[in-house]
Design a protein around this nucleic acid. Sequence first.
DNA 1: TATACTTTGGTTAAAGTTAAACAAAGTCAA
DNA 2: TTGACTTTGTTTAACTTTAACCAAAGTATA
Lengths: 170, 170
Amino acid sequence: MGRDDGEASTIGARSFGSIADYIAAYLHRLLEESPEGYIEIRRRDLAAKFNCVPSQITYVLSTRFNACAGFLVESRRGGGGYIRIVKLPVGAGSDPVRRLLEAIGPSVSQVEAEGVIMRLREEGIITPQEARLMLAVCTQAAARWHPLWRDTARADVLRCMLGALLRENR
Amino acid sequence: MGRDDGEASTIGARSFGSIADYIAAYLHRLLEESPEGYIEIRRRDLAAKFNCVPSQITYVLSTRFNACAGFLVESRRGGGGYIRIVKLPVGAGSDPVRRLLEAIGPSVSQVEAEGVIMRLREEGIITPQEARLMLAVCTQAAARWHPLWRDTARADVLRCMLGALLRENR
DNA sequence: TATACTTTGGTTAAAGTTAAACAAAGTCAA
DNA sequence: TTGACTTTGTTTAACTTTAACCAAAGTATA
C-alpha cells in the first residue's frame, strides 16, 4: 500500500509532496465525498495505509485540519476508538464565530471570555439562554478551578464551545 | 450471531463502534419499544447474542445505564435470574433540572455527563444547540484537562450549567 | 427438611486496543 | 547554516475486552 492516494498540495514548485501532504489530500477527498460533512477514521489504520507512524496522522490533523483551516477534530481512545474530522460550514453567518475562534489563544481571562460571549449575544449568534450557559462555565465554574490552570482551561472551554456553534446550520 | 444489532454511539452516526456501543444501542432500542418503560434481559443470553463475555454486559450497564443517565438496574441471580433496566421518568410535577442538579456528585465522568445532557435533550429541556454546547465542554474541552482534576472540574461545569438552566425559567 | 448441585448474575484485576502528548531526529530551502 | 517543517519514537492516558473467582437463588433428592 503506497502513498499514492491523493496529490501533494504544496503551492510551490515542489513536485514530490510530503507524506503529510498526501494524507491531507486523501482526507480532503474523503471529506468532499462525504454527504454528512464529516468523516471518521482510525488513526492506526490510516497510518498503516500510508505506511507511516500513527503520530504522523496527529501531525497532519494539527497542522492542516485545525480550527484556522475550518475543521474540527474529535476523537476517542480505546477499543472502537476513532477520529472524527468535521468540516465547518463556510456560511456567511458563521464567519464572526470563526474569527473569534481563531483569535482564542492558549489562555483566556474571565473578562476576555465575557467579552466574547457578549459579542456573540450582540451579533444575535447565540440566544440569551446559550449565553447564560456559556457564562456559567466561563465565570462561575472557572472560579472554582485552580488559578494555575484556570485560564488555560477556560480557553479550552471557549474554543470548544465556539466550535460547537459552528457545527450546525447558521 | 453478530454485533450488528443497533448502531454505534450515542451522539452521531459512527462507523467504528465498540461492542459496548452496539450493546448499548440495542438496549436503548429495546427500551424505546417497550411500552412499560422497562425491559428484562438475561445477562448470559445477551452476552451470547453479542458473542462476548457476560461481564461485558455488566460493563455496559455500569457505564451507560447508571443513575446519572436516568436508569435503574435491578437484578436477580439463580435460575430464572434476570436484569431489569428501568428508564426513570423525570417526574412530571417537580423540577427535573433541580433533581438532576442534586444528583451531581463531586466528580462526573464523561459518560455520566453525556448521560445527563442526553437526558435533558430527551426531555426537551434544552435545544439541540444547547446540548452541543454542553457536550463540547464536557467531552472535548474536558479531554484536554489534567486527569487529576478533570472529573471534578467537569462536575463544576455541569453543576453551573444546570444552575444556569434553572435561572432561565423565570 | 437438609443437602448437594445447578443456574444465574456480581466483582475485580489483568490484558488488550487505541489515541494524545511530548520529544528527538531528519530534511529542505533560503 | 539556520530555521521552519516533517518524520519517527517513546511514554502516558482513556477506554474496552477478557478471565477468574465469588455470591445468590432455584432445583432435585435422600
